[in-house]
């Protein structure tokens, strides 16, 4: 029982991070039908920028809270600019091109960003400076840390903020209208370019926050870390119904739980043949099953013909 509870806690934390990243995929897809495969790299750059800024500031003698805060602000700013430029440079010129073209471009941008990060930060694993002194708590035989609580809390607040933005502001309404009918939204005076840029920028800010969470949680970072994280978050978005915000949140949490419980029990289930390091297969087994049996995902109301 304690392993179950423990894995539920771990899964929730991991799932909160997936959800944050999945939102970036789903927002862009919902508005323009594009899967921005470079989004995982935006998250990675968020983590690496935080490391650089925080390490520098700590060395310069700044207090931890200030260094951490400025690290987050720097990551969010860099990722905003990065997301905005990605759309401007790579995707906007391909508006109206066959669907496969922007998709392949997205994969290309992902490779470009990985290599760029490798050139800037090198090939080695980097340690994330410790910002928060870890304390451990226990309930019912399961342990959790203040860092885990913080991650879930920040993720929850960010997602709440996003929902408020999308459902309670004029920009959010314009985003939803554009997602449903871009032509008519244009007739209403909505500048589709601006809405698309906002989706990229907002998704990138959430991605940057997720990048900081990953760094704080695993305390380690690498220029290739965005790839697997991105694929899993994409899986989470598909699981929830890509294009659907609530779906991305639920899909992220669910995927985190499936993975954690899978990793916790895979040894028992296979009689010790497979160990917990096989946890990555669960995400992709889920992806395959969703695509086979419910391609519209849990919350998806339509299976569009968009790629």
């Amino acid at each position: 029982m304690d392993i179950f509870l423990q894995q539920v806690i771990n899964g929730l934390v991991q799932g909160a991070i997936y959800a944050m990243v999945a939102l970036g995929y789903t927002m862009v897809y919902g508005i323009m039908g594009l899967i921005n495969f470079a989004h995982g790299e935006v998250v990675m750059i968020g983590t690496l920028v935080t490391i650089t800024v925080v390490t520098f500031l700590l060395k310069a003698g700044f207090p931890v809270w200030l260094a951490g805060g400025m690290g987050i602000v720097a990551a969010a700013s860099v990722c905003m600019v990065l997301g905005w430029s990605l759309e401007r440079v790579a995707y906007r010129p391909l508006r109206g091109a066959p669907r496969l073209t922007p998709l392949i471009t997205a994969i290309g941008m992902s490779i470009v960003l990985q290599n760029l990060a490798m050139m800037i930060w090198g090939r080695n694993y980097m340690t994330f400076p410790s910002l928060i002194e870890k304390t451990q708590f226990e309930i019912g035989g399961a342990a959790f840390t203040n860092v885990q609580v913080l991650i879930v809390l920040v993720a929850g607040l960010s997602m709440g903020g996003l929902l408020l933005l999308v459902y309670r502001t004029k920009l959010g309404m314009a985003m939803r209208a554009t997602a449903q009918n871009p032509g008519v939204a244009g007739l209403m005076g909505v500048n589709a370019n601006r809405v698309i840029s906002s989706a990229f920028v907002i998704g990138s800010v959430l991605g940057a926050l997720a990048g900081v969470m990953v760094g704080v949680y695993y305390e380690i970072a690498h220029y290739q870390m965005g790839f697997m994280l991105g694929l899993k978050a994409f899986t989470a978005a598909v699981l929830g119904g890509i294009g659907n915000l609530a779906g991305a949140m639920a899909g992220g949490i669910l995927l985190g739980l499936i993975e954690a419980l899978g990793a916790g029990y895979i040894g028992d289930l296979t009689g010790g043949f497979l160990g917990s390091h096989y946890q990555d297969i669960f995400a992709f087994v889920v992806l395959i099953f969703v695509l086979m049996f419910r391609p519209s995902g849990l919350f998806g109301e339509k299976t569009g013909d968009r790629a």
Partner: peptide, 8 residues
């Protein structure tokens, strides 16, 4: 004129 300007 782009379409989103017409309504203005």
């Amino acid at each position: 004129l782009p379409p989103h300007r017409l309504v203005r």
